[in-house]
């Protein structure tokens, strides 16, 4: 289990957080997408081996949303 730094509450256990997955661009307007692009946006993720930036929420704590960098193999977290 990871220890994650909430910007408000400090270092807390992973079980208090919700991970929303890798950081992605703002949801595009449907009319600007071809069918192909729409499927990609909905289904495809980088699923990358290495450092990725993720959106997390301290959902069972203060509710704050923040971003962090996590290594998907070692699970190291870089929040600075």
């Amino acid at each position: 289990m990871l220890l994650i730094r909430c910007p408000w509450c400090g270092l807390r256990s992973e079980s208090e957080f919700h991970c929303n997955g890798e950081v992605r661009p703002i949801r595009p307007h449907s009319s600007s997408l071809t069918d192909q692009q729409s499927v990609q946006h909905t289904c495809d993720r980088l699923n990358f081996k290495g450092w990725i930036e993720e959106d997390w929420c301290h959902s069972k704590g203060c509710g704050e949303w923040f971003r962090l960098n996590r290594h998907t193999v070692t699970h190291e977290i870089d929040q600075d």
Partner: peptide, 14 residues
């Protein structure tokens, strides 16, 4: 709640 929360914070923070 989770859906609304992630939508206005992550997908459409604007």
């Amino acid at each position: 709640e989770t859906r609304l929360d992630s939508f206005i914070n992550v997908e459409r923070p604007d």
